[in-house]
Design a protein around this nucleic acid. Structure first.
Lengths: 255, 255
DNA sequence: CGTGAGCTTGAGACAGGTCAAGGGTGGTGG
DNA sequence: CCACCACCCTTGACCTGTCTCAAGCTCACG
């Protein structure tokens, strides 16, 4: 349990998206109804598929993932979450999840009991709309992942993911100048890209040799953003960022 | 413009899911606020990525798809829609879409102006929750498609899709006894499965020779449902059907 | 009866998987 | 302080699933 300054818990929620359109009273209501702040260790499963979920989780620090296992036990990541993401808000309207959620590194999260959400949302259709919107961002990213797996080769898949994470982390102030911390191992990248870890290793080498990017010791450095985006066929429109052109300029300037 | 008996437009919406939990007054409000019923021809693009969307579409008859193109112009389907699906409800909270929507065969749809939705949803948080839920079904299916593309081989991908469509069509009464109409061509299946049409053709032959299923002239016939589901690693939980065990029994009985 | 859209099959190429071995590094315990 | 171990990264050799290219077939329709 960590003490946080009032108004800080949701500080990154929808940041870079529509946070500026949120009603301050709605934000205050959300802040007031948090039921707990928790720290969780590395590689811990938070929620298992099928079990009833009675609370929802906003990621404050660290990286979480959602995944599904195939019969042989091989994991497919279906989402990677960064701070500010309302990770399992899907469980609120649905009542259970169809996949597992787990930490990758250590994380800090805030949780809301679904009952508390019910109470604050009933009289606040606009806030409910915002939460709805935030789950649709997940859906948009899911679609992009389908595209990534269905149409891109191994290099493109890795490049696309690295570009997406840069953009998302930049929105919440966690990526600057083309470099960001990413506490994944190569096997995690493989599970996100539908590849083997051996092949991800080769892809990373190729990207390094082409001087497009590096990924070492949990840190990504993008060396040639335009080329990396071409390789990954990355167009950030699906992230529904506030100021896509301004972000693009800022990033170009920083590179 | 087609005349429909009052109360029929949304008859399939959430059918087999949570339709029975919907408030009759909410349904009536939805019915009343329909702005048009339209018939659309084969292979027609309805909505293009990025353009502002001011109305949302409920599919009444036929099959629609959502897709994204890669740089070379190759299409990746990210969703296939069946009657009862509120296809582009995502555009209501989001304002625009990140992908295109097109018909496959001829379809009949109902459309709602977003303004009309705003009006009926403001005082109806429960209805808004239902619409939210329906978009999260799409997200759940997206996740399953990610799994399909990331972890299954060609046979499994096709098998999985065929099983999913059977289950979804059965929920709205359009699949019986393991057979259903599916007005796709092999190239559409390929675009949904991240494969080439040549390879889909070979996969279909293999599935036919193993007496698991056939697909000819726009009709699917499932010959060995248990084996097909094993091959596709298909578990219908992600479809959030009302009575998964009853559905399973009914289907087993019909086979 | 010709034409085109969709289906089918074959042969060869290649991306990525599989299996196997070795190397670096940090943590732990003797 | 060193030895060991676990975890992760790296590389090589070979294998296979899927793609590519190409040709022919079927059938509905004008």
């Amino acid at each position: 349990m960590t003490a946080l300054v009032d108004g800080q818990v949701t500080a990154k929620f929808l940041l870079g998206r529509r946070r500026d359109q949120m009603d301050p009273d709605d934000i205050a209501a959300l802040e007031r109804s948090v039921s707990a702040i928790r720290d969780l260790p590395t590689r811990r499963t938070l929620i298992r598929a099928g079990e009833p979920v009675v609370e929802s989780t906003l990621l404050l620090e660290g990286i979480l993932c959602r995944y599904m296992d195939d019969r042989a036990g091989h994991r497919q990541l279906v989402a990677i979450h960064v701070p500010g993401d309302f990770v399992d808000l899907h469980g609120f309207p649905m009542g259970r999840l169809d996949h597992d959620i787990a930490t990758i590194g250590p994380v800090k999260v805030a949780v809301w009991k679904h009952g508390a959400l019910e109470d604050i949302l009933a009289p606040r259709p606009k806030l409910q709309r915002m939460l709805w919107f935030s789950t649709l961002l997940d859906a948009a990213m899911h679609r992009e992942w389908i595209f990534r797996l269905g149409r891109l080769g191994a290099d493109g898949r890795v490049a696309h993911l690295i570009c997406e994470l840069e953009e998302r982390l930049a929105m919440v102030g966690l990526s600057r100048g083309g470099t960001y911390g990413l506490p994944l191992i190569q096997a995690d990248l493989a599970e996100a890209c539908g590849l083997t870890n051996v092949h991800v290793n080769r892809v990373l080498r190729a990207l390094r040799e082409q001087e497009l990017m590096t990924f070492r010791d949990g840190r990504v450095t993008i060396l040639n953003r335009p080329q990396l985006r071409v390789l990954g066929e990355f167009e950030p429109g699906y992230l529904y960022g506030n100021h896509p052109e301004k972000v693009a300029e800022a990033l170009a300037g920083a590179a």
